[in-house]
Amino acid sequence: MTGDLPIELELTGTKGRYLVKGPDGAEAEMTYTSIGESQIIIDHTMVPDAFRGQGIGARLVARAVEDARAAGKTILPLCPFAAAQFQRHPEWADVLKH
């Protein structure tokens, strides 16, 4: 079950990437850029066909929200998928950059 697959975080300087790796080698990812110490910009979400319809993309965005909240950061969702997730989850308003 893909809901059990862990979400990993890779950091490279100001760039970050949350990813889920499937047993077949497929990777779903959400990338972001850190802006200073207080904001991240989600710029891309990609979910391969092997993961479609399983909520993996939503899990990736939710993890970014959890991490941003814990770090006192805000999120600017430039990625259309992430922006749509923020519209579906008004409870994330505390981390949404206006």
Rank of each mutant, 00 (worst) to 15 (best):
K21D: 02
A84L: 09
K73P: 10
D49Y: 12
I41S: 15
T74I: 12
I40K: 07
T74S: 15
A68W: 00
I75S: 03
M46K: 00
I75D: 01
M30I: 15
R52Q: 01
A71W: 09
A68S: 14
D67E: 13
V20F: 04
T45H: 07
R69K: 15
A26H: 11
L19I: 06
D24W: 06
T45E: 05
H44N: 14
R69G: 12
A62K: 11
D43T: 09
M46F: 04
V61E: 06
G57F: 08
A84R: 13
F81H: 07
T45F: 04
P80I: 02
M46N: 00
G36N: 13
A50K: 03
I56M: 10
I35N: 05
I56P: 13
A62Y: 04
I40Y: 13
L76K: 01
E37C: 04
T45N: 06
A70Y: 13
A84P: 14
P77V: 00
R69P: 13
K73N: 08
G55P: 04
F51K: 08
L19A: 11
A28I: 07
D67Q: 06
I42K: 00
E27S: 05
G36W: 10
V47K: 04
D43A: 03
M30N: 15
A82K: 07
S38F: 00
F51E: 11
I40A: 11
A62Q: 11
P23Q: 03
D67G: 02
T45V: 06
A70R: 15
I56A: 09
E27V: 15
L76A: 05
Q39T: 09
M46E: 03
V61A: 09
I56T: 14
K73T: 09
R63C: 06
L78P: 01
Q39V: 06
Y18C: 09
G22N: 03
D43H: 05
A70M: 13
G53I: 05
Y18M: 07
C79G: 05
I35E: 08
F81S: 04
Q39Y: 02
H44K: 07
D43L: 01
P77I: 02
P80G: 05
R52I: 00
A26T: 10
Q54C: 13
M30S: 15
F51R: 08
G72H: 12
I56G: 08
F51M: 12
P80A: 02
D67S: 03
C79Y: 02
S38P: 00
A62W: 03
T31N: 05
R69T: 13
D24I: 07
T74E: 12
I75G: 02
Q54H: 15
P80N: 05
R63W: 05
Y32A: 04
A70P: 15
G22D: 04
R63K: 13
E37K: 08
V65F: 02
L78C: 01
G72M: 12
G53Y: 05
R59L: 00
Y18N: 07
A83S: 01
I40D: 13
T45G: 11
G36Y: 10
P48E: 11
I75Y: 00
K73E: 11
P77H: 03
V47D: 09
V47W: 08
T45M: 04
S34P: 01
I41N: 15
S34F: 01
R63I: 03
A83Y: 00
L60Y: 11
G72D: 11
A84M: 13
Q39N: 04
G36C: 10
E29R: 09
A58P: 08
I35K: 06
P77N: 02
Q39H: 04
D49W: 07
L60N: 12
D24Y: 08
S34H: 03
A71P: 14
